[in-house]
Amino acid sequence: MRRIWPAVLAVLFYAVTASVFAPVATSEPRYPTPEADPFFTAPPEIGDFAPGDVVRQRKFDLGPYQGTDIWHVAFRSTNSAGDPIMGVTTVLIPTGVPNPPLVSYQALINSLGTKCNPSHSLVNDETPDAFGAALPLARGWAVALPDYLGPNVAYGAAKLSGMVTLDSVRALQRAPELGLGQSPIALAGYSGGGLATAWAAAMQPTYAPELTLAGVAAGGIPADLEQMALGIGFGNHPGFGLAWAAAMGLEREYPQRLPISDQLNAEGRWFRDFTADECRRFLLFHGVLRSAEQLAATRSLMDDPEARAVLRENSLRHYPGLPQTPTMLWQGEFDALTPFDAVADVAGRYCAAGVALTFSRYQIAEHMTTAVAGLPEAWNFIEARFRGEPAPTRCRS
């Protein structure tokens, strides 16, 4: 899975002319197929709800999680353009435990289809870190897994993910049937989920100032999409399928500012439609022998300032907001997927501003190995915050 996030630029900026297919004049983004289940459809009056208000909820059974009450909660949120949208989170609550600590865990989605969201993927095995996300249940905590990419499954849209994450927590506190209104709250996630988690923490003081967070743990953060973009090559790569998904997801969220479909040749438009509803494993398998060079028809996004602006707007390195809660960041020093220096810059800025930050550096190169190495420390960090222990500050480890 190395260099997947950086490969986004193979689609965003370095779309080169390398096909016998003719370019298309205009082409709309390809959005996911609408949900058949009406629970996931926003009501026409979604704009009348306040961010975080509960739209509807339902309880259901899930065999592998015995002794646990499981709910879907639909709520109002906001997209990157400021428009109202409906989000969904799935929460697992230990049966009979009043006001348990609550962790919102932003899972690895890395996909384009709604079937890949945690609201579906806990039963179809498409959430690769579902087991690790469920581990806090053994500590007596409740665990929520939001569909933080929004209704259009906009993979790569970090600002959106932060808002949906915060609104999902608001909704869980506002649903009296869940018994979480007085629960202490923490956020956690890795890689794409770490991006959503870190953005939620940084946006909370301005977007959801009434929320009190006990702690935040985020790892493997793609903190500077523009930097990743500038350093990418555009040949074949085994992780191209996920890079493609990130480009398509950003186009879904910014259709006017990132008209990537306009830059595709006929094969690219076919591949866009072929993958529009698919999940991580499908994307990896079918992207392994493909590249932006094969699927693009023009260089017109090469140095587009608007495209660069979108990447910067979704890069934590350039976001001025600061968490007001104890925060742990963990990162592999030699991670080829999510560059260390961008996260180190974020950590330095946080420490200089007085954020109670624990920054853990792991001398590891492989992206997912760092996830496994750092997750126990992350859970222990959060547990200490739930116990009310003073947060340490460690800007360099």
Rank of each mutant, 00 (worst) to 15 (best):
L172M: 13
L172P: 06
Q173R: 15
Q173I: 00
R174F: 02
A175K: 00
A175I: 00
P176E: 01
P176D: 05
P176M: 06
E177K: 09
E177L: 10
E177R: 06
E177V: 11
L178F: 09
L178G: 08
L178P: 10
L178A: 07
G179L: 06
G179K: 04
G179E: 04
L180E: 02
L180T: 01
L180G: 03
G181E: 14
G181A: 15
G181T: 13
Q182W: 03
Q182S: 14
Q182N: 15
Q182Y: 08
Q182K: 15
S183W: 09
S183C: 07
S183I: 03
P184T: 04
I185K: 12
I185C: 03
A186W: 06
A186G: 15
A186L: 10
A186C: 09
A186F: 05
A186I: 08
L187C: 12
L187Q: 13
A188I: 00
G189I: 05
G189W: 04
G189E: 06
Y190A: 04
Y190H: 14
Y190C: 04
Y190P: 05
Y190S: 07
Y190R: 04
Y190T: 05
S191T: 05
G192F: 05
G192V: 07
G192M: 07
G193T: 06
G193H: 09
G193R: 09
G193D: 12
G194K: 09
G194R: 09
G194P: 10
L195C: 02
L195Y: 01
A196E: 07
A196T: 08
A196S: 12
T197A: 13
T197F: 10
T197E: 11
T197K: 11
T197V: 12
A198P: 07
A198Y: 09
A198E: 11
A198H: 13
A200I: 07
A200E: 05
A200Q: 10
A200C: 10
A201Y: 09
A201S: 13
A201K: 07
A201D: 08
A201C: 06
A202M: 13
A202Q: 10
A202G: 07
A202V: 02
M203Q: 15
M203A: 13
Q204V: 03
Q204G: 04
T206E: 14
T206Y: 01
T206M: 01
T206L: 04
Y207C: 01
Y207P: 03
A208G: 01
A208M: 02
A208C: 00
A208K: 00
A208H: 02
A208Y: 01
P209E: 11
E210Y: 05
E210D: 15
E210T: 12
L211D: 11
L211W: 09
L211S: 09
T212S: 14
